[in-house]
């Protein structure tokens, strides 16, 4: 049963090589875009790069499913059985992300505390063992030695406060 698809399409090894190269190139482009984005500060520019990365991600997903998982060479019956239900994701993503976005807008409009939180800068962490700025002002006076090791209890107190 399985040997019929080996001679149905071209040289499988050549195809594997081709797809490997495509996947590697797409990943490298993604990484280049990721590095590039570090320096980009404009909101529109970041959004454009992120959109491109998502498209490249979907292209990678297509190549893995179609060639590595062999779905492209299966019967149309099987392809449709797998792919059509996954189309639900289009709706899931649209609905949930816009819901999240609308929730943020609502809170920024009607929840002054939520909006204020987004404007108060906190101290950036110092050193590698990073102390979070959120509790720094109070915690530092109470316990000046709140450096690396004592981070855990301080953090526990902080989560309790929340």
């Amino acid at each position: 049963m399985s040997n019929h698809d080996t001679h149905e399409h071209g040289d499988p090894i050549a195809e594997i090589k081709k797809v490997t190269i495509i996947l590697s190139v797409l990943t490298i482009i993604e990484l280049i875009l990721g590095f590039w984005m570090i320096g980009v500060t404009s909101e529109g520019g970041r959004l454009a790069i992120k959109g491109t990365i998502v498209i490249l991600m979907l292209a990678k997903a297509f190549y893995i499913v179609a060639y590595f998982m062999h779905l492209k060479h299966e019967l149309k019956n099987l392809i449709m059985t797998i792919v059509v239900p996954l189309a639900l994701f289009i709706w899931f993503i649209t609905a949930f992300l816009s819901d999240g976005n609308s929730f943020r807008n609502l809170r920024n409009t009607y929840d002054p505390h939520f909006k204020e939180q987004a404007t108060i800068k906190v101290e950036a962490k110092e050193g590698h063992h990073g102390e979070e700025g959120a509790h720094a002002t109070e915690a530092k006076e109470a316990a000046p030695a709140t450096e690396a090791k004592e981070a855990a209890p301080a953090k526990a107190a902080e989560t309790e406060k929340k």
Binding site: Q117, A118, T119, I120, K121, V122, A124, K125, H128, H129, G130, E131, E132, G133, A134, A151, A152, K155, T159
Partner: peptide, 18 residues
């Protein structure tokens, strides 16, 4: 670095509390 479930030592990109 102090990160775990329920613990986040990293502040937001815009400098606000996370």
């Amino acid at each position: 670095e102090g990160a775990w479930w329920g613990m986040n030592p990293f502040i937001n990109a815009d400098g606000t509390a996370s």
